[in-house]
Amino acid sequence: MAPYLYLLPAFLVMAFITFYPLAFQVWMSFTDFAQVNFNVRLHVAPHFVGLENYIDIAESKLAIPNFEFPRLVLFNLWWALSNVIVHVVLGVGVAVVLNAKGLWFKGIYRALYILPVVIPQIIVATVWRNMFDTDSGAVNFVIQGIGGIFGLPADTPAFHLDWLHQVNDPISFIPLPLAYFAMLTANTWLGWPLNSVVATGALQSIPGELYEAAEMDGASPWQKFRNVTVPFLRPAMLPYAIYGFVITFNLFFLPYFMTGGSPFGRTEILVTQAYRLAYEQNLYGVAAAFCVYLFFLLLAVTLVTNRLAQATKSYAD
């Protein structure tokens, strides 16, 4: 009996504020729950609509502008994947550089590089939003400064980019708006340091003898990296990359505060769209169905990535 007594308080609380709401949400997703059903005194019950909400979402038939479900899902997956690739590559790169024996000021660099992680995310997002401002943002000032070195005047139109709202894609054959690249930049600033911390931990567990042996065999620096470093990094980096994928997939802050989904909802991700459906459009039933989709997508992502992790298991396991 005793074990359950320790669990009781936590599960009692979770029953009310986690499990019941989740079950309620599933029920809600089959109804046309709206503002009128809120008021407890009116007692207006929502209508049961079956799978209508789910079908409307899948067929992008919602009465809100710029909603295309397949595009949203694809963008969200690509957003998470592209971020994780950039973060891992940069994180490992910096960790390898900082691991060079005899490098000066190592401790100072390590302390500086962790700074983005310690700042609350809402501040990171709002500050980067202002950094990418068209006329007053620091990013455009830097571009103007670099242009100035080559004698280009500061009012060249290309130096006043509307980073967060420009409608035309910057690269004609890649269907991604400029705002995506701004978000990627901001999230890279935020994301690589933790990857670097994880990679540093893994690098420091590699026995030095392995490098010495590789050197004696005449391995080039690239061969050493490829055949000694990478196999040791993989068991540590892979789980973290999967975890980073899930976190970035659900990263509410950047799309919501930086771009607000612009241009035309193309930088919206699932969680921000769900929030908007409920809070701005008052489509509670639809938003609930949307969250159920979100849950199954996350489940699929977890299962696929876990399979991937099993298939590429390496030494340390």
Partner: peptide, 16 residues
């Protein structure tokens, strides 16, 4: 539950 984003429970909690 740990994996779910908080957006996923916020709407039913609002109503509850």
């Amino acid at each position: 539950v740990l994996m779910l984003p908080s957006v996923a429970t916020i709407i039913p909690l609002f109503i509850f």
